[in-house]
């Protein structure tokens, strides 16, 4: 379990996260919703160790890991699928996947087997395994980014807006992949603008507004329309 408590992150003098606390439980899909500029991506970059938090704590299985460098976070089993996919454009699909297992490079074996598993999970990547990643379509690049993260054998998979810039039919496909990963018992933390789709798959969700968690719960127990409206538009005035 990843416990995040009172994390504060700023860009210069502008506070983006004003004390965010949330838990990512083992197994299942935890979803973070919120409007543009709420600080969702800032939270992902902070967890990944790329942005430095000014205050707070982050514990995985009770071990404090806030302030570790990005590659150390990966070796703790927290692996990010970044927004806009960020594949290595001039590397083959296969090399992209092998790069994903970089933190495991000293292991004897295992990597080839995992590569085989990823290529079996995503047959489209197998067809294009020798192709440069930059020539793939958006949906295929998203699959590659997910596959690359799986190569690190994550304990917790962070996914930042996997639906950005994809056609609706591809978005459905990506969410089916995410649902499949959840059903395997993996721990996933999904940051999404597409609240409608996210609520369909989430086990738990948090709502982030203006750098604070303002709402949390289970999708079955809340009014979806209310959450979706706030996720897109921000808080309504109390009435």
């Amino acid at each position: 379990m990843l416990e995040i408590a009172d994390i504060k992150t700023s860009y210069g003098k502008i506070a983006a996260l004003k004390g965010v606390s949330l838990d990512i439980h083992d197994g299942g899909l935890t979803c973070l919703l919120g409007p543009n500029g709420a600080g969702k991506t800032t939270l992902i970059w902070t967890i990944a160790g790329i942005l430095k938090a000014q205050a707070g704590s982050m514990k995985i299985d009770s071990e404090e890991i806030l302030g570790l460098k990005p590659h150390q976070i990966v070796s703790k089993g927290i692996v990010t699928v970044p927004e806009n996919r960020l594949v290595f454009p001039d590397m083959s699909v296969r090399d992209n996947l092998i790069a994903g297992a970089f933190s495991r490079r000293k292991e004897k074996g295992g990597i080839e087997g995992d590569l085989e598993d990823v290529l079996t999970r995503f047959p489209r990547l197998r067809e294009r395994s020798e192709q440069m990643a930059g020539t793939l379509s958006g949906g295929e690049q998203q699959m590659l980014a997910v596959g690359r993260a799986l190569m690190a054998r994550p304990k917790i998979l962070l996914m930042d807006e996997p639906s950005t810039g994809l056609a609706p039919i591809i978005v459905e496909e990506i969410f089916e992949i995410i649902g499949g990963l959840r059903d395997e018992g993996r721990t996933i933390f999904l940051v999404e603008q597409n609240a409608h789709m996210a609520l369909k798959y989430a086990d738990r969700f948090y709502l982030l507004e203006q750098g604070r968690v303002t709402f949390s719960g289970e999708p079955g127990a809340v009014d979806h329309d209310e959450v979706i409206q706030r996720a897109y538009l921000g808080a309504r005035k109390a009435s």
Binding site: P70, P82, D90
Partner: peptide, 15 residues
């Protein structure tokens, strides 16, 4: 090669 093509993603790969 990873760092020269996409340094952010390289970090996320544990490099």
């Amino acid at each position: 090669r990873a760092v020269s093509q996409q340094p952010r993603a390289a970090q996320l790969c544990g490099i």
